[in-house]
Design a protein around this nucleic acid. Structure first.
Lengths: 230, 230
DNA sequence: TTTTTGTAGACCGACGGTCGGTATAGACCG
DNA sequence: CGGTCTATACCGACCGTCGGTCTACAAAAA
């Protein structure tokens, strides 16, 4: 058989990228190691030379993915010119939550991630990104406390709770989004939950009424329209 | 081979009970169908006569488990003599959240459920019990609205969010509980979370300050003491 | 007696993972 | 500069285990 030799980093990246695509297409559980190596055209031995198990591969992908998120959030936290409320709002925007131009990507990710065959992937991504986001978010909370816009006793614990909370919300809204075609009224349901989440967060943080604008209703509408078109 | 014939319901219950115990001991993923049937002493054919798949067995167990919870909550909702606030408080108590005498059971369940090999089990239990609890809880919310003790625009959506919120909390506190032996300071962390949750729920519902007493601090302390003993 | 239903266990393909061995690039040496 | 040595990227046959199927059959019900 033909033997193709590549550099360590290059081969590893090749496996990770291919696997990530396949996980998105078919789910983590439904993608066998055999299928991954057939797709790339490498042997079993090669695969296990780079990853000690299928789950180890997943962990590597999760780590890469979450690091990319964090690198977007860090500049916001360290921005000296922004107040805490703006930073928090920007947090959610940067998390890619409502970029209209990216709606196709969001659709793909939603359909890929929120699939029963992707529980472990989702679980690991959520956990890891939450753990990495907590220190950043709690720093913003402390700034808000100092500025008088927030009233938070335990910044870290509150950050953790709000992030978990957001995960649950996301889980539910993703389900609604996936069945949007059969159930157009899901749009209203989603908006409702966005609003409740928003006001809940606001109240939990003790922030002034109307200060937290995690989800801009107009943009939510735009997403929905674009979703229905495509 | 010896052939032992049992009634349908009896045999089905036997399989479900055994499987539940094994899932708790070793996790859903780590418990093979082969091991289940060996433990009971039945054949593969018998197993698949009662359940069309391993996951079907899990669904049956989840259904039974969640129905038991709901049957405890229903009488509270339908009680004509209780006000909404008392009902909500009683909800959490009945959910088995802080029964000191049951601490061993809680320990078992926590250790069983919050195990990486039980992701699917936990996911299904959370989802199902949430869906079943929402109509009951939102009924209480509506009562509270009428009594003037709550101020809730969308009772169902709010119920869902509060339950999601509770799930998130439970997830993290379970993790803390599991590492309590190595990290005694986790007790304080858990209390912190209980308090944040309590005040958050209160604020989300627009309930009067101090009216919601989901977690009695003394009882939490008692649980912790008993946990450390055992 | 016939039909239904509960039971048995050999068997299957697919899975994740292991292992002994091979090819090749770069370092080292004469 | 040619030879050889070594580290490592790579190969693929093989393994045990998994969830699940199928045919045969015993026992109870009709």
């Amino acid at each position: 058989m033909v033997r193709i030799v590549k550099e360590y980093a290059e081969r590893k990246k090749e496996i990770m990228d291919t696997a990530q695509t396949l996980f998105y297409q078919k789910g983590y559980e439904n993608t066998s190691v055999n299928f991954i190596i057939e797709t790339i055209g490498i042997s079993k031995g090669t695969f296990y030379h780079y990853f000690k198990s299928k789950e180890d591969l997943l962990d590597n992908i999760v780590e890469k993915f979450t690091n990319e998120i964090i690198s977007k959030l860090e500049p916001i936290v360290n921005d000296k010119s922004m107040d805490a409320i703006s930073k928090l709002n920007e947090f959610y925007h940067q998390a890619g939550m409502y970029k209209v131009e990216n709606i196709d990507i969001i659709k793909t990710i939603v359909n890929a991630l929120y699939n029963d065959k992707n529980l472990l992937l989702r679980y690991k991504m959520n956990n890891r990104s939450t753990e990495l986001t907590i220190p950043l978010m709690s720093k913003v909370f402390e700034q808000g406390n100092n500025e008088g816009s927030f009233n938070i006793e335990h910044p870290e614990a509150t950050a953790r709770i709000i992030l978990f909370f957001g995960t649950s919300m996301g889980e539910y809204n993703a389900k609604l989004m996936m069945s949007l075609d059969e159930n157009p009224s899901n749009i209203e349901e989603m908006k409702k939950h966005f609003n409740i989440y928003q006001t809940s967060v606001q109240r939990i943080l003790g922030a002034p009424e109307g200060s937290i604008e995690i989800f801009d209703e107009q943009i939510v509408d735009a997403i929905m329209e674009k979703y229905n078109e495509s």
